[in-house]
Simulated assay, not measured.
Amino acid sequence: MHRVGYLLTEGFQIMCLATQTVFEFANIVAGKAVYRLENFSVGGGTLRSSLGMSVETLPLAAPGLADTWMVTGTLTPLTPPGDEVLASVRGFVDAARRTAGLCTGSFVLAQAGVLDGRRATTHWAYANKLRELHPKIDVEEDRIFIVDGPIWTSAGMTAALDMALGMVEKDLGNEMARSVAHKMVMHQRRSGGQCQHSELLSLSPRTDRIQSALDYARRHLSRPLCVEELAQVAHLSPRQFTRVFTAETGQSSAKAIEGLRLEAARLMIEQSRHSLEVVAKETGFRDRRHLREVFVRVLGVPPQAVRRDARQV
């Protein structure tokens, strides 16, 4: 049986406990108790979350209480959690099979010195601060989650669910992970190599006209998409569309569509076995060479590296 311990501190972020549902459903799918979950704190007893909800915890004692430790984050990650907490983390990391920082829980691992010399991620809003405070860490703020040996770290909020699902896949196989994702209505199971941001979400247009044009573009990426066509969808003249689009999104429509194509291609590469020629055609790139050029220019890596990383998670 896999024993999963959650280390909570006062004011922990309640969303971190949502990851327990992934392990709960793994037990349901398996038809037996594959995972045992317990909540811990340094002294045990009742702890209050950032939302004010109370959770009972067991006291930390011997480091062998769990083989997987999930270190939860708080809304004040820049405040060290205390020497006892950090000493406990250092103690159980050596004895555990793996240790994970959920969202800003990465700061606890960093403050304990666990992440020095490793790749790690955290909530995008705090990534630069993590890099600034802990220069020995290779912070990759654009990743959903990262596995570096026995140390796992996740980005914010729902990314921790993807990381927990990645653990289930590592422990019990791909089919089990797919079944759990299906039961949890996670229609899109994201691998760790994915970007934290949705390209469409990051554009954040202010009006429905531009939003409708972007939605249209995303549904028709395999086609050439000219300004005239998008302007017609937005019920604007091409000149008006160009001006309004740039004002609302901060970039040209051509640049935005390239971002949507890149995001769609990346998802196809990570989640399917389609050839790069098929991926390029389906997402609107001229050919495989054009696809590679954009990947290297924007992401710094070729599409083959993205596929390789996704399969290693």
Rank of each mutant, 00 (worst) to 15 (best):
P205V: 11
L267Y: 02
V29K: 04
C16V: 03
P63T: 12
L221N: 07
T79P: 01
S179C: 05
R189Q: 15
E84W: 08
L276M: 13
E228D: 13
A26K: 08
A125C: 03
V301C: 12
P80W: 14
V278M: 11
D287K: 13
C195V: 03
T246H: 11
P303N: 03
I257K: 02
M15H: 13
V298K: 09
A18N: 10
W152H: 03
V296T: 15
E277V: 14
S179I: 02
R308F: 14
Q211G: 10
R239A: 15
A310Y: 11
A120K: 07
K32V: 07
Q111G: 13
A256N: 00
V89M: 03
T283Q: 09
R266F: 08
R48W: 02
A160K: 06
R273Y: 15
F241R: 06
A87H: 13
T9G: 12
V93P: 00
Q251E: 13
E282S: 10
F25V: 13
A33Q: 15
Q188R: 09
L102N: 02
L291C: 10
L230M: 15
P303G: 09
G73C: 01
G73E: 05
A231L: 07
D94P: 05
S54Y: 05
S41N: 09
V4N: 06
G43W: 11
E10L: 10
L201A: 12
S88R: 02
D142I: 02
E263C: 00
V296R: 12
E293G: 04
R131T: 15
R288Q: 11
R307N: 08
T207I: 07
R218C: 09
L51D: 14
K183I: 04
Q304C: 01
S275G: 12
A254C: 10
E10S: 15
R307I: 02
E84N: 10
V4Y: 05
I151D: 00
A310I: 01
E270G: 08
G300K: 03
A155F: 00
S204L: 08
G11S: 09
G284R: 03
T46R: 12
A231Y: 04
N27D: 10
L299A: 12
H197I: 11
A159V: 05
F107E: 02
F12P: 01
E229G: 04
F12I: 03
L109T: 04
G113P: 05
G91A: 14
R98S: 04
C103V: 08
L291Y: 06
G44K: 02
P59W: 13
V71Q: 01
R98Y: 06
D148M: 04
I137E: 01
H220P: 05
S204C: 15
N128R: 11
G45Y: 15
S154V: 01
A164Y: 13
P303M: 07
A18P: 00
S88C: 07
Q196A: 06
V147W: 00
R206M: 11
W152Q: 01
T79D: 13
D67A: 05
G73D: 01
E282K: 13
Q240K: 12
R288I: 05
S179M: 14
T242P: 04
R308V: 05
D171C: 08
A33N: 09
P238M: 06
G64I: 08
M268W: 11
E38R: 15
G52P: 01
L8D: 10
E169I: 10
F145P: 00
G11Q: 07
D83V: 15
Q232Y: 07
A181Y: 03
A310E: 06
C195N: 13
E258L: 05
G166K: 10
A254M: 06
V244C: 00
S237D: 14
S88I: 06
S106E: 06
